[in-house]
Nucleic acid binder design. Structure first.
Lengths: 194, 194
DNA sequence: GGAAAAAGATGATGTAGGTTAAGAAATTAA
DNA sequence: TTAATTTCTTAACCTACATCATCTTTTTCC
């Protein structure tokens, strides 16, 4: 069952009767992405939330100098979308790209709205999901303001241990908010010392 | 009617029947805070969401050097809480303080949960509220990574025009993520040039 | 209304992290 | 399996912003 990971994830927050599960599943589509394939490009309107079942996506923006800044990674069991664009249905600023061959489950904005009405429990599920995301984002703002790059890196290692080994360093550097060059220096400094 | 501002705010997202309004109002408490009064202190468990009707609050953290970092301001018509602590009911890291004499409406975590069950529409209301907050916080992360302090200040001016005149410069500096000294210099530079 | 406290301005100097450049190592793709 | 591409490292130099210290102005509050 390809939807097991998602259903299991949901069951942590709400209980679905089997007919509700069926309705839900009827709204889902599967999609495979090749490494480097763009799932959503800057300037597009985001029409889907994506739930990753295999592989990994990254959401990033490009600034006026052409530098990329990673807003989020989405390994298996995570959702990703351009929230701004998804909500407003206006062109977004995020590019979402596969870092490796990746499999996702899609839920369209329109179907998500239907779901809220047909099975109000989903309103609760997504509220909780977004609450948790908000807390994580607020913590990241605080960390960015009050910690050094090295401290932020250590926190990243603790919080996302699985990503450390799989992601290219430059992606982590970009998420942390430093250049790959500085990130490299920082890491070799960390190795030499404690 | 002291709850008008809040009811009006809610009516932008969901429609409440008058009996539902009554139930909702029965859960609310009013509170007045004096300038500099602490509404929530670091290390406390956050038991209430606060909706500001008059004055202004700020939520901030204190880092290991004793420096403060403003996560959010709450002028009238805004909610504020330590979301992490409110959700987890664990000790929080935010201090929430009145920047001037302020009036707020309180909704306890427990009553909010009751509300979700008794009037499911509130699940929708708070979902939308939190979605918008998440988008704003994500944009702030991106801005912090990709813009200079000056650019962030200009965005702040556009986004919160009313706050510019009322807030002490050092509070805005702290929100922007710079020291008051640098903020002062930056501003005088902006005045001299365009 | 006036003393005390807080906020703001400004100068000199320090530093975390950026930039540029160039070579080495690892991955990819054919 | 190898050429091409991407990633990583290291070094020299640079800059946005921090720190510290002192002074002026504004606000607070009795």
């Amino acid at each position: 069952m390809p939807f097991n990971l998602l259903l299991n994830n949901i069951s942590k927050f709400i209980h679905l009767e089997s007919n509700e599960q069926e309705i839900f599943i009827s709204y889902l589509k599967q999609k495979k992405l090749k490494r480097k394939q763009i799932f959503l490009d800057e300037g597009e309107v985001c029409k889907y939330s994506a739930f990753v079942t295999e592989g990994c996506l990254r959401g990033y923006t490009v600034d006026k100098n052409g530098d990329e800044h990673v807003l989020s990674f989405a390994p298996p069991d995570w959702w990703i979308a351009d929230m701004y664009s998804l909500i407003s249905q206006k062109p977004g600023i995020l590019t979402i790209e596969a870092l490796e061959d990746t499999e996702i489950i899609l839920l369209s904005k329109a179907d998500q709205e239907k779901l809220y009405i047909e099975i109000p429990k989903f309103e609760r599920f997504f509220r909780i999901l977004i609450e948790n995301s908000l807390v994580a984002n607020q913590q990241r703002i605080i960390d960015n303001m009050s910690l050094t790059a090295e401290e932020r890196y250590k926190i990243f290692c603790k919080r996302y241990p699985t990503l450390i080994d799989t992601l290219p360093q430059k992606q982590i550097a970009s998420y942390i908010g430093v250049t790959p060059e500085f990130f490299s220096r920082m890491r070799s400094g960390l190795l030499r010392r404690g």
